Amino acid sequence: MTDIEEALALLAAPCTDERFFQRALKALALVTQCRWAAFGQLSQDRQTVNILWLCDGKQVKPGFTFPLHGSPCENLYKQQNGTHLLVARELQKAFPTFSLIRDIGAQSYQAELILDERGIALGHILVMDTLAQEENTKSREFFRLLAQRIGIEYHRLLVSRQLNLHKEMIRATRHMMSFVDHDYRYRIVSQGYEATFGLNVSEIEGKTVAELHGEDAFQIHIKPLLDRALRGETLHTQHWIYPPSPLSPMFLSVHHNPYIAENNEITGVIISAHDITALRRAETDTASER
């Protein structure tokens, strides 16, 4: 098996968590025959580089942070054209004030920017070695393809983390909160749904809105609101719902908020509903007395 074939086999193995990035760095080190491979990002103030994952030989080590100024990574981000940078030899002479490369004995550096769909840098992948690195089509193309793949997978990881955060927030509340996807299916619901519909959370998650509320209520009242939110509109409405007997009808104040992922794609709707039945009836009684 060639280096490229072995690297592709490493990347092809199924994985939905951070182990993908560890395999990707191992593959990059294998193809380039370099000792160190890493995935890094600039800090928000663009003053430091945060190494999220580092592969040293065959071992993945904890990340670390170093100053951007005076490092080869600074040159990578400052390029006016292109996304690739190679310092083939004498790395320590080229960056005499950057102590990290001197401490580990690195003499060559190669890196590729990871860009999102708008062309904005999400981070970079890099390799370093104690020996010189020669430019070749095989490693350059693998750098490019791997940067694209990591960009996609990192975006998925960020979306998953953000959704998990919302999941924890939604489930913790006793109000009626939920996340509904493009298929009008409940993916996350709060404890408030249990009391209202007499079902456990596990029984509700995975159901469609029509299955929970009834097809007529869904088509006439709920779907139009969800469709507007899925197009990017934030809505606030008030309406009655009719949960299963023996509960009485409930008058709800409902907010529909589009859930926008990192790439500005709307992936679902977060719904927050509050029971204001008592307030509604008080207003109705006051109006009838007049």
Results as ranks from 00 to 15, higher is better:
Asp3Lys: 15
Glu5His: 05
Leu8Thr: 07
Leu10Ala: 06
Ala13Met: 04
Cys15Met: 12
Arg19Ala: 10
Phe20Ala: 11
Arg23Ile: 01
Leu25Met: 14
Lys26Gln: 15
Ala27His: 05
Leu28Cys: 04
Thr32Met: 01
Cys34Tyr: 00
Trp36Tyr: 11
Ala37Phe: 03
Ala37Gln: 08
Phe39Cys: 05
Asp45Lys: 03
Val49Phe: 01
Asn50Thr: 12
Asn50Pro: 05
Asn50Gly: 06
Ile51Pro: 05
Leu52Gly: 07
Asp56Pro: 09
Asp56Phe: 01
Lys61Phe: 00
Gly63Ser: 07
Phe64Arg: 12
Phe66Gln: 10
Pro67Val: 04
Gly70Asp: 10
Gly70Val: 08
Ser71Leu: 10
Pro72Cys: 08
Cys73Thr: 13
Cys73Lys: 06
Cys73Val: 05
Glu74Leu: 02
Leu76Pro: 15
Gln80Leu: 09
His84Pro: 03
His84Ser: 09
Val87Asp: 01
Arg89Ile: 00
Leu91Lys: 08
Pro96Thr: 06
Thr97Met: 03
Thr97Ser: 13
Ser99Asn: 10
Ile101His: 04
Gly105Met: 02
Tyr109Lys: 03
Gln110Met: 09
Gln110Tyr: 00
Ile114Trp: 00
Leu115Trp: 01
Glu117Ser: 05
Leu122Trp: 04
Gly123His: 03
Ile125Glu: 09
Thr130Lys: 14
Leu131Met: 07
Ala132Phe: 03
Ser139Asn: 15
Phe142Pro: 15
Phe142His: 14
Phe143Gly: 10
Arg144Ile: 02
Leu146Ala: 10
Leu146Phe: 04
Gln148Val: 13
Arg149Tyr: 06
Arg149Asn: 15
Ile152Thr: 14
Arg156Asp: 15
Arg156Tyr: 13
Leu157Asp: 07
Leu157Ala: 08
Leu158Trp: 05
Val159Asn: 15
Arg161Asp: 11
Asn164Ala: 11
Leu165Cys: 05
Glu168Asn: 12
Met169Asn: 03
His175Pro: 00
Met176Leu: 14
Phe179Asn: 07
Arg187Gln: 14
Val189His: 07
Ser190His: 02
Tyr193Thr: 04
Leu199Val: 02
Leu199Gly: 05
Asn200Val: 00
Ser202Asp: 14
Ile204Cys: 14
Glu205His: 10
Glu205Leu: 08
Glu211His: 08
Leu212Glu: 08
Gly214Tyr: 00
His221Ile: 05
Lys223His: 01
Arg228Gly: 04
Leu235Phe: 02
Leu235Ala: 07
Thr237Leu: 02
Gln238Trp: 01
His239Met: 12
His239Tyr: 15
His239Val: 02
Tyr242Lys: 11
Ser245Met: 06
Pro246Asn: 12
Met250Cys: 09
Met250His: 09
Phe251His: 15
Phe251Thr: 10
Ser253Ala: 14
Val254Gln: 11
Pro258Leu: 03
Glu265Lys: 11
Ala273Cys: 08
Asp275Phe: 05
Ile276Asp: 12
Thr277Gly: 11
Leu279Tyr: 08
Ala282Tyr: 01
Asp285Gln: 14
Thr286Lys: 09
